[in-house]
Design a protein around this nucleic acid. Structure first.
Length: 470
RNA sequence: GGCGCAUUCGUCUAGGGGUCCAGGACGCCGCCCUCUCACGGCGGUAACACGGGUUCGAAUCCCGUAUGCGCUACCA
């Protein structure tokens, strides 16, 4: 068994393409088959080498590994011409000298008359004389029903009459998609073709070609499309569309892989969080749903949070690195552990961690308003500063004991000290457990931040510094 | 327009004639935990597109309708 993922390098790796790649990989792994990566760059107008490289990089990042390739179709041009000529010799294809202009004119006339246009087959009947004129090679389509069994769609039927003599080889000598896929799928011994639903209507053409070449047909599986929240094909308008954008957003590759796997497929039961290996053990293309799925970013974010929560800091670190500059693992390990269940993305995680490295924290206005009040706050904070300075060792237990003892001594609820302390240390109204924060920050930073907070207190008070009679 | 395909909570899905007045997850809403925020736990909200068949019995099978999407290029 052999499958392939065959993107055309006209842009970044689209999440729809990413899912197609994943399903191909999963099916191959499940059945002990191999996986080929083929770059379909026969459209010189739109293909770009950097896009091909980008797609390869995205697949690697995502964890879609292939066994063969990447093979570039642009390296196989001679082969496509050769095979097209074979069909001309055997009479299954013919040269057509009709120009694009002529055809467009015909089409315009037909459309004006309200009729749908199909190529007349003029050059098929009247073989053009050998001349220097440029030509395309068209396939001579035979009328008659074409049926095939799709692993996902079931039995699908088409009428040959409705397919016109499509172009195999363009006038510039480049093959069209139909020619290159079929030639390659034959030469590369592909047994299963799993691709987007947009190719379902092209399949009869391909079947005709497989037959013309005397080759057996592969098994087809047409995957339902991934739609945006507007129920249209996922596009820029409805959100991020490329794997790369999700990476830059701070999505971990395992989470995107898992999420994409769940679009149109389910391992059965109530399982939602699973690894590539687990999916590889049970996946089968025939279990894929027929209906298109809408890409729900909210659920992706939830899933990413699930992954962050479960991953050890050491595993998160390499993915987080691009978001936190050059900071070393040792400097952020404890922070990752403190914040990983509070962030949905690596970006959020990085933002939260950033406060620990600034010289002076900014105090959130809302938190200030809520917690900076009471005439004796400065006094309490000074006492807290002294109590923490005496805490030894400076760990979670000791700092907590020190604060609670002080609260009891002053007849205050511990919260009355905790919230201002949080504001002093993080500048925010919300954070992980304050004693965890203190322990991670370390005695020196805690005392410095607390001292600065006390200093700034007059400016932060609701009455303002000037109106404070002192 | 023609051809093709699809249709279970707002979204992802389970389910393939009786166990389904439809299960899980995201989201949303409550409650609990608690120094805050998260995490976690508990509970709630919400769906078989519509109409005809077949059958003792249909979300499940058949036919229509509607809606949506795809293809209809010398793009893939």
């Amino acid at each position: 068994m052999k499958l392939r993922f065959a993107p055309s390098p006209t842009g970044f790796l689209h999440v729809g393409g990413a899912r197609t790649a994943i399903f191909n990989l999963l099916h191959a792994r499940r059945h002990g088959g191999t996986m080929l990566l083929r770059i379909e760059d026969t459209d010189v107008e739109r293909s770009r080498q950097h896009h091909a490289e980008q797609i390869v990089a995205s697949l690697q990042w995502l964890g879609v590994e292939w066994d063969e390739g990447p093979v570039y179709q642009s390296d196989r041009l001679a082969r496509y011409r050769e095979r097209a000529e074979e069909l001309v010799v055997s009479g299954k294809a013919y040269r057509c000298t009709c120009t694009v202009e002529e055809l467009e004119e015909e089409r315009a006339v037909a459309e004006k008359a309200g009729k749908q246009w199909r190529y007349s087959g003029r050059c098929r009947l009247v073989r053009p004389a050998e001349s220097g004129a440029s030509y395309v090679i068209r396939f001579a389509v035979d009328a008659g029903p074409i049926a095939f069994h799709d692993l996902i769609r079931g039995d699908v039927h088409f009428e040959g009459e409705l397919i016109d003599d499509f172009v195999l080889l363009r006038s510039d000598g480049y093959p069209t998609y139909h020619l290159s896929v079929v030639v390659d799928d034959i030469d590369m011994a592909i047994t299963h073709v799993a691709r987007g639903d947009d190719h379902l209507s092209n399949t009869p053409k391909h079947i005709l070609l497989f037959r013309a070449f005397g080759a057996g047909e592969p098994v087809f599986a047409h995957l339902p499309l991934i739609l945006g929240s507007d129920k249209k094909r996922l596009s820029k308008r409805s959100g991020a569309t490329s794997a790369e954008e999700y990476r830059d957003m701070g999505i971990v590759p395992q989470a995107l892989f898992n999420f994409l796997s769940l679009l149109g497929w389910s391992p059965g039961g109530d399982r939602e969080i699973f690894s590539k290996e687990e999916a590889s053990a049970v996946f089968d293309l025939s279990d894929v749903n027929k209906a298109p799925a809408i890409f729900d970013v909210e659920k992706l974010l939830w899933m990413n949070a699930q992954y962050l929560q479960r991953m050890p800091a050491e595993e998160i670190y390499p993915h987080l690195r691009p978001f936190i500059g050059d900071r070393e693992l040792a400097a952020v390990r404890d922070l990752i552990n403190l914040y990983k269940m509070r962030a949905r993305t690596l970006k959020e995680l990085a933002d939260q961690i950033a406060v620990y490295f600034v010289d002076d924290v900014d105090y959130e206005a809302e938190a200030v308003k809520k917690h900076v009040k009471g005439d004796d706050l400065a006094d309490s904070m000074r006492a807290l500063h002294a109590a923490l300075a005496a805490a030894e060792p400076f760990d979670v237990a000791a700092t907590e004991a020190a604060l609670r003892a002080l609260a009891a001594q002053r007849g205050l609820g511990a919260a009355k000290l905790i919230h201002p302390l949080r504001l002093a240390l993080t500048g925010k109204g919300a954070s992980p457990g304050i004693f965890d924060v203190a322990a991670v920050l370390g005695k020196e930073k805690v005392l410095r931040r607390l001292a600065r907070f006390i200093e700034r207190l007059p400016d932060l008070s609701p009455s303002g510094p000037s109106s404070t009679p002192r």
